[in-house]
């Protein structure tokens, strides 16, 4: 088991002397366990393949983690193992302070979008066998890191909220009467409704990085409503005004990075382009 950058170790020792916090002792014990774990003896262990993870570590609060660094973990590989499985193993076995969001493990909650070997992917949806080893795992680029692999999603949520992400038709039928919707129309919005708010698209987009561009996910959300025939014309008009405002669709440079990373295969670029055309058509009417 290779370990952290050497200077961290010395730092931790110095810490222990000054202030014998139990956590520090336990962390030290864990590190020791890591060193002596059977997984570290890869050479002697022929039937057990291990995968090396290089994981980004950062914690603004903990001495020795304030400076971002990469930690190595050697995790025994089993068939079907995903990046998330490996992270969970590393956390539960070697270092319980390893922090990442995860919940459903089946690509529907959108918690574990990570930067894995240079691409935004869901940890749970990515088979280790499909990756080059060692596997480098980082938090999503272009977002503030809270700790380790956890990023601040506030900006993403704000952008989602900015497009009025809710059905606006006030003129709904009474009681058990439904609003009719064509199968075709439902099919049209189907892909756009699959968004799980993981933020991979936003992180991959270098226009959205650091700026105020609404971003692919929010525009896709707007698309979902603009294209839904159940909302009436006035509402659609309002929505188009939002998405063609300065930070809206025109900022899209059709780099396709969002479409490529979307774990739900939503044709994001296509949706954005379609909205551009809608907006132009809409304005041509008033010329």
């Amino acid at each position: 088991m290779s370990t952290n950058v050497p200077d961290t170790d010395t730092e931790t020792h110095a810490d222990t002397d000054a202030q014998p916090a139990p956590q520090q002792r336990r962390l030290a014990k864990k590190r020791e366990r890591r060193e002596h774990s059977p997984q570290s003896e890869t050479s002697g262990d022929t039937d057990q393949e291990t995968v090396e993870l290089k994981v980004f570590r950062y914690d603004p609060e903990v001495e020795g983690k304030r400076e971002p660094r990469f930690d190595d973990f050697h995790v025994p590989f089993t068939k079907g193992m995903t990046v998330l499985d490996a992270l969970i193993y590393a956390r539960d076995t070697f270092d319980s302070s390893l922090t990442f969001r995860h919940s459903c493990r089946q690509a529907i909650c959108g918690s574990d979008a990570l930067f894995i070997n240079g691409a935004q992917r869901l940890g749970c949806q990515t088979q280790l066998s499909d990756l080059e080893w060692p596997v480098r795992i980082e938090p999503l680029p272009h977002q503030e890191v809270v700790k380790d692999l956890v990023v601040d999603m506030e900006h993403f949520y704000e952008q989602m909220d900015a497009v009025d992400p809710f059905f606006k038709d006030e003129d709904v039928p009474d009681g058990l009467e439904e609003q009719r919707q064509d199968r075709e129309n439902r099919e049209k919005i189907k892909m756009s409704t699959r968004c799980i708010w993981c933020g991979a698209c936003m992180s991959s987009c270098n226009i959205a990085a650091g700026g105020n561009y609404l971003g692919p996910a929010a525009i896709n959300k707007a698309y979902r409503f603009v294209m839904d025939e159940r909302e009436d014309g006035d509402v659609t008009q309002e929505r188009l005004e939002t998405i063609e405002a300065e930070e809206g669709v025109w900022r899209c440079q059709t780099q396709f990075s969002c479409t490529e990373v979307c774990p739900k295969d939503i044709p994001l670029t296509e949706h954005i382009q379609e909205l551009k055309r809608e907006a132009v058509k809409n304005n041509l009417k008033f010329w």
Binding site: Y58, P68, R69, A119, Q143, G210, Q253, Q255
Partner: peptide
């Protein structure tokens, strides 16, 4: 396009090599 957060040398680690076709086309 400025970084909202400085991850030091780690941030720029290998970014350009990971550009996809569409991004190169844009550049």
């Amino acid at each position: 396009m400025s970084q909202s957060y400085d991850r030091g040398h780690i941030e720029s680690f290998g970014r350009w090599t990971e550009f996809s076709a569409g991004m190169w086309a844009w550049v």
